[in-house]
Design a protein around this nucleic acid. Structure first.
Lengths: 134, 134
DNA sequence: TATAGTGTACTAGTTTACTAATACAGTCAA
DNA sequence: TTGACTGTATTAGTAAACTAGTACACTATA
């Protein structure tokens, strides 16, 4: 694991919280980081804000940040190195992840549009998807 | 609210639990009842199993059944009458609900097939839908 | 009217999910 | 080597979600 270069884009990346949304904090962090990847705001090798930076910035506990980063590490999106920091994974897996994610958003966007045209809400879609799980 | 007739189909309707699925019991009841409506196993006016029948049948607490039925009542799917029982709502709302539901399942089924063809899991779809909410 | 069966309401207990506090261990530069 | 910074791990606290226990109120029938 070589240390990634600090790109200008990475320096501008910051998390934001919406405490009214009801979405758990750690989940928001995960979502935002994946979105940053999907929109090329972050790329392989970039260092992401440290656990403590994020915690101070957002006035949350470091362990909440850890939770998000750990999940992303398990998914192969992030690579963390104790004492050094956390980076966007360099392996082609992460690139595939980005494409995978981008295409998924495309598909889902089409779905939502199509269903919305017939009067179905996002919530209804989600519930129906849940039922498909059986 | 006139008392619905007991159709043969309604007598055959029973809930089943999958305790391994991790889906809360009350949610399973909701899902199964909606599915029974969507597949015409139950129709407007049918009486559904009583709170206590379901509780005894599935070895759960009556209040868990109540929770499911109450949510369905709020959604206009069920009509409950204290001392009498619980019925599929007679209003055209419930019929619209059935058509609405059936079409939704159709749409979602197509979505899942299409996305599955590209290697996306149900879980991924659901997560991507969540992100659409922003 | 009495009884059996119905849903309703309230409280309580348990589990799960989420977040925090804190100490430990590793890295890197001076 | 030291100090600052890094992630890691463990425990604990809180809130939310889920389920249960139990009594009350209503309905229908004999």
């Amino acid at each position: 694991m070589v240390r990634g270069t600090q790109s200008a884009a990475a320096q501008l990346f910051r998390f934001r919280l919406d405490l009214q949304s009801g979405v758990p904090v750690y989940r928001q962090l995960i979502d935002q980081l994946l979105a940053a990847l999907a929109t090329c705001q972050l790329k392989a090798g970039d260092q992401v804000p440290t656990v403590r930076q994020v915690a101070v910035d957002l006035a949350i506990n470091p362990n909440t940040v850890v939770r998000a980063y750990k999940e992303l590490e398990i998914r192969g999106v992030l690579a963390t190195q104790q004492g050094t920091g956390t980076f966007i994974a360099e392996v082609s897996l992460s690139r595939d992840e980005v494409e995978h994610k981008r295409r998924l958003h495309q598909l889902v966007g089409e779905m939502v549009a199509r269903a919305g045209g017939e009067g179905y809400s996002l919530k209804e879609l989600m519930e129906a998807l849940k039922e498909q799980r059986r």
